[in-house]
Design a protein around this nucleic acid. Sequence first.
DNA 1: TATTAGATTGAGAACGTTCTCAACTGATGC
DNA 2: GCATCAGTTGAGAACGTTCTCAATCTAATA
Lengths: 348, 348
Amino acid sequence: MGNGNQRYTIDDVAKLAGVSKATVGRVIGNYGSVSEKTRKKVMEAVSELDYVPNTIAQGLRNHSTKTIAVVLGSIKNNYCNALVYAIEKEAMKRDYNVLICNTHENLDKEIKHLQTIRSRQVDGILLISVYTVGKVIPDKYRYLYDSPDIPMIFVDRNIIGIKKDLIESNNEQASYEATKYLISLGHRNIGVIGTVAYSTVQERLKGYRRALQEAGIPVESSMIVDAEYSENRAGQRLAAKLLDEHPETTALYVLNNTLCGTVLLELKRRGLKTPDDVSLLTWDDDEINELFDITTVVQKVDEIGKKAVNRLFELMENPQSQVYTQKVDAQLVIRKSCSVPKKHAERK
Amino acid sequence: MGNGNQRYTIDDVAKLAGVSKATVGRVIGNYGSVSEKTRKKVMEAVSELDYVPNTIAQGLRNHSTKTIAVVLGSIKNNYCNALVYAIEKEAMKRDYNVLICNTHENLDKEIKHLQTIRSRQVDGILLISVYTVGKVIPDKYRYLYDSPDIPMIFVDRNIIGIKKDLIESNNEQASYEATKYLISLGHRNIGVIGTVAYSTVQERLKGYRRALQEAGIPVESSMIVDAEYSENRAGQRLAAKLLDEHPETTALYVLNNTLCGTVLLELKRRGLKTPDDVSLLTWDDDEINELFDITTVVQKVDEIGKKAVNRLFELMENPQSQVYTQKVDAQLVIRKSCSVPKKHAERK
DNA sequence: TATTAGATTGAGAACGTTCTCAACTGATGC
DNA sequence: GCATCAGTTGAGAACGTTCTCAATCTAATA
């Protein structure tokens, strides 16, 4: 009686059932034709031994490991882990497992990971790349990004110059609408805080500019302040900078969720309340946002994850498939951190 | 010139170098003896083709997949993703990759995952089990938990009745100290909110009781309220219950971080401020805790992750190794959410 | 009864690696 | 000149699966 303690092989099953391993293969693989009597014998042997095929051996033979890899900055990031959650859920439906690779937003680590997971023969890769706008991939490693032998899809972040499928939020449009919302409340001096190097943030900035221009408000570049990814409490420093250098600021528009927490800290330090003293609008939902009633552009992370996995499987089936970008609508969730600007209201 | 587009095999390298694959194996595996001349030829062929061994084939041959699996409730949980972060970092140092399995705190999914990762021949398993105190593992699946063929370690949560290594915080002691701290401030009516079914929470409750008893304060069982894992906003409901049924409550002690956010929400709803109206002490650090200046028992997640991986590798090398439990100190980080109770202060 | 189509079955190759074993090479000592 | 030895090398088995191909069996037909 098998209790899982030993790992049995297909040969053990064959011997116990008194057939060849080819026949066992037919029964468990459910192909070819097997007589009812034999099938039953085999099934009994299988459950007797608790036999489960060795996925590694299958992988070698089938050139498929039933594994997808997710390469991302850090699983500690809320957006990322929500994405991985959705991805893993979707992958499991197809009996796939998910390998996690943190790059710590570091180019070398991203490359290292991409190399390892290649040699591991993963069936597909979902990449939230650290390659930011302006950075160039060394020729030596370019194959990691553009070779077609392993299906790969970019999620959330694009790499300019590499033609791959991309799944992302409709950053430009959602940002345009968020900005328009602020403008509609009466804000004309909207300070922007974000990590500009990310392709997503660039898109969000485009939307911001479009909304301002449409409203006839000049875009003041010194009101857009840039954060480095690695900087600790960047949000705090930048909010301070913005509020010091531009006391006319009536609204803060934060383009990365990671920055928002310490922006709040700075507001608290200055005794500024939202929305009375300053309006606040940020990207990506979070428990904090709910608790603080912060108006937020919420990305549909579940949908992005689901779409990414679906597309990856399409690509695995048909690698020649035409490259394209899918945009998922992000939604402005209005809470209570934005209102008519005080100065504006007074002026009236 | 290899550009990674094709996957070359050891035979390709052998052919190019004009030697046998055995010799190539000797060179890249760095064993046996090879003449300098041959070694050079092989090295050249390797880099010419950008040859990287197929990990799957190695896995089949070596009975080692260079993979560990982490089975946990949900990667969206802050404690869990911080743990996975630490685990992955540590695993990478040893050229191991990490498979993520979310159980959604669901028994069936945990079993399903354990089965799959077994057939995948992972080299080791780190399990944050959903098996809570009182639940019994069906005999049929017991082998998934106690069979010695794959090294497995429990992290954070113990399963009573299964003898496995366990890495956890010193829950009882840290909780004892946290409670003592509240008592030292003058609190005698400390309401406790937690998901009692978890082994960790049970330990924390023990520490709480010990501190009360030591101070001669009777333990009022109706001041300990229990949350179900799956309940939405359980923290809010339970805080409300506690404050309604026990208006004498001067401090809330929250044993699970997941509950704390909505506890805050309820305090906000009632217009209660910490620490003036009520003191608040919680487990597990979080950006919220920092922002709200909440006094917190902080677990050393990095250390737990590191210890877990180290121990797992020990076990992989020596499966007979004696089972034992490692406790990692959790630390009380005092911020500003606890003070002398108002009523108490007034009474004086 | 002989023939044949179709159903059923097993032997064995292949996937890409590691590593044992045996064989070969030169050089040294007698 | 021959035996010995260390250093070097290659053939091929093994890991556990899938699946092709050919062989065997069954039953139905002429």
